[in-house]
Simulated assay, not measured.
Amino acid sequence: MKLRVLGCSGGIGGRHLRTTSFLVDHDILIDAGTGATELSVAELQAINHIFLTHAHLDHVVALPLMIDTVANQRDKPLLVYGAPDVLDALQRHIFNWTIWPDFSQLPDAERPFLRFQPIEVGAEIRLGERRITALPVDHTVPAVGYCLNSGQGSLVFSGDTGPCEAFWQAVARVPNLRYLLIECAFSNRECSLAMLSKHMCPRLLGDELRRLNRPCEIFITHLKPGEVERTMLEIESGLGDFNLEMLQNNQLFVF
């Protein structure tokens, strides 16, 4: 499997700051933040599966525009996977005919442009030899992380989460873990805000990483604009033993 980072910022502010979206091979998106808007129409048309971590706007904002762009150019529905509460939020608050048309009913319910596919924590979706499993996390809204397993190696993406023992227990069961992409949205001076919003700061992240029971390459994502330098300096000074790197746009992972 190949994963390309389209966006990994915790906010916007210039072309280089794009919110979370990863392209897997040519046909899968993990989240649909503003990073997905970097894809061409042909690349958008090739996507058949979108796995959402949660329904916050920075992770779904490109989805309505994407399906509107390519719907008439596809011969099968775009499949959108997420926890049941995530899909319910999309249907009630976005695809509701007020904010955006309900593409799960267009052109009709039997042949829609978009299908919602509920996925429970621990459930594994098989797409050929590729396996994608929803992992437990702890955020302010219903959310999951994902494990992507090619059979030869795995990549785990935390999505948005605060401290979560169940997440690390799930990671411990991944037999061929190569890469861990984990959020750290805030610097330590905003640790109280991180805890309130169920995100990470370096202090919290350090405690969590001590639960990791195997070596892998670890990358930091979802850094807040304006806090990137401070947060990475805190990570380098306080978590140097873990050899953490900042995730970058267009970074490619092969596993």
Rank of each mutant, 00 (worst) to 15 (best):
S158E: 06
G159R: 02
G159F: 05
D160V: 13
G162H: 00
P163G: 02
C164Q: 04
W168F: 15
Q169I: 11
Q169H: 11
A170C: 08
V171E: 05
V171D: 05
V174K: 09
V174Y: 05
V174F: 03
N176S: 07
N176V: 10
N176Y: 05
L177F: 02
R178P: 06
Y179V: 15
Y179T: 14
L180A: 12
L181W: 02
L181N: 08
L181H: 08
L181V: 14
I182Q: 01
E183W: 00
F186C: 06
S187A: 15
S187V: 01
N188L: 01
R189T: 09
E190Q: 15
E190V: 01
E190W: 14
C191F: 11
C191M: 12
L193E: 07
L193G: 00
M195E: 15
H199P: 11
P202V: 01
R203K: 05
L204Q: 15
L205S: 09
G206A: 12
G206E: 13
G206C: 14
E208Y: 00
E208H: 04
R210D: 14
R211W: 07
L212V: 09
N213M: 06
P215H: 12
C216P: 07
E217Q: 13
I218G: 04
I218L: 09
I218A: 03
I218S: 03
F219H: 13
I220T: 01
I220Q: 00
T221D: 01
T221A: 14
P225W: 12
G226T: 05
V228H: 07
E229D: 00
R230A: 00
R230F: 01
R230C: 02
T231C: 08
M232F: 09
M232E: 03
L233D: 05
L233K: 15
I235K: 09
I235H: 03
E236T: 13
S237T: 12
G238W: 09
G238D: 06
L239S: 09
G240N: 02
D241Q: 15
D241I: 11
